[in-house]
Design a protein around this nucleic acid. Sequence first.
DNA 1: CAGTTGACAGCAG
DNA 2: ACTGCTGCCAACT
Length: 122
Amino acid sequence: MRGGKPNNFFTRVWDTTRQIPRGRVATYGMIASIVSTSRAARQVGWALHAMDKLPPQDIRTIPWHRVINSKGYISTTCQEHTANEQADLLQKEGIEVRRRNNLWWVDLQKYLWHPKRLDAQR
DNA sequence: CAGTTGACAGCAG
DNA sequence: ACTGCTGCCAACT
């Protein structure tokens, strides 16, 4: 984002998010362990929020809605891309999204993405 | 350079 | 099992 800096972390998060297959979901922690350490989960959410600064045509290539928290809940607080929108996008991919504790919930046992290899994407 | 922020996770009470 | 507190780490100010 910022001018000359590579911003490897953000770029890797976006890149990894693109790897999530349609009809599957991944957790922030998973993305974090792929691009950095499993402890950088919060930064993954931050990176996805920062995605809003990208041009629309780029945002369109990033399935941000397939990233949810480790408990299976949709936890976005983003105003541009709301939880309702996220739930809607997931349902359109055939993923069951149900109401639970007044939040949207996805069964990870059923829809979690199992990447072949967790190696960092270069 | 130091303090703050945040779309998480895991553990403690 | 459920709720709240704390650690994490990159980016921001």
